[in-house]
Design a protein around this nucleic acid. Structure first.
Lengths: 153, 153
DNA sequence: TATTGTTATACTCTATAACTATA
DNA sequence: TATAGTTATAGAGTATAACAATA
């Protein structure tokens, strides 16, 4: 007669831990960014654009891992508030060259401060060294397998 | 004149790391469980029920962090394949007492093996000690704040 | 009056398909 | 013929609202 398995706490599953870490962190950063009129997804867009030469919407979408059709509305919102400019790329007029404005850069700076503070609250229960290890472990797990091409998906 | 910020890799953001860790892990575990006819969300249900006394759908839903209306379809599927029984709780006939069958337990055992193997592939790039630290760090971050009630949300 | 399970509905998010303009 | 951006549509997933049975 096989021994019945002991009760498994759902919280033991790595999937549960990672999922709820994501939910918690998103809730924290969304709340921190809300006063600026953006959420954590929008912040990702700013992050991709800041300090870089103008790029096409599709390039930005690839860096974010979203579809190009999803990118349209994201840029729409930033363009409407004067944080991003869209203009046809002179070298290939099918493309939009999107670029952060001064206003967009100022928004990024405020957003970054709010985002970093929210990250800090999320990581507060951990020793700083452990927090660093956590970040590094996630980077390692997500890094492209060694010995193969580094192509983006 | 303020120094322009350097380009930020989106991959530096903790939110990016956690989100994509979740996506990667879910893809791995879903693929590993697919031959059994379940996905990682279904596996969570099995995990909650295994080795425990019969509980109401609402209790199970609370443990999983999903709505009670979402629970209905999850249990429907398991009941249809004879993995879970639903019967009115004699003490409170508003409730369904849901319980794993022998068949459900056998399914859980196979699913657990597949799930653990998928977790292992996810964590493969890490030293075993680092993998343990990662799990522990996530537990710590998600643990209820000390000195307060441990109520579920 | 409140609670459990259920159903129907709505909402969010994102991708797919189709169109346009360029190449 | 292929590609970038756009729009409309559809799908997955999950929550909210309303209802029946029970407490």
């Amino acid at each position: 007669m096989p021994t019945p398995p002991p009760p498994m706490e759902p919280h033991d599953a790595l999937g549960y831990l990672v999922k709820h870490a994501h939910l918690r962190l998103t809730a924290l950063t969304d709340a921190a960014l809300a006063p600026l009129g953006i959420d954590s997804k929008d912040f990702g867009v700013l992050r991709v654009l800041v300090g870089r030469a103008p790029m096409s919407q599709q390039e930005a979408a690839a860096k974010l891992g979203v579809d190009r059709t999803t990118m349209v509305a994201l840029i729409d919102a930033f363009e409407a508030r004067g944080a991003v400019t869209r203009r046809p790329d002179p070298n290939d007029r099918r493309r939009n060259a999107i670029e952060l404005t001064e206003r967009g850069l100022a928004l990024y700076r405020k957003a970054d401060a709010a985002y970093v503070a929210a990250e800090g609250r999320f990581l507060a229960p951990l020793d700083p060294a452990v927090a660093t290890q956590l970040r590094q472990a996630l980077r390692t797990v997500l890094a492209p397998p060694e010995g193969r091409d580094r192509d983006e998906r």
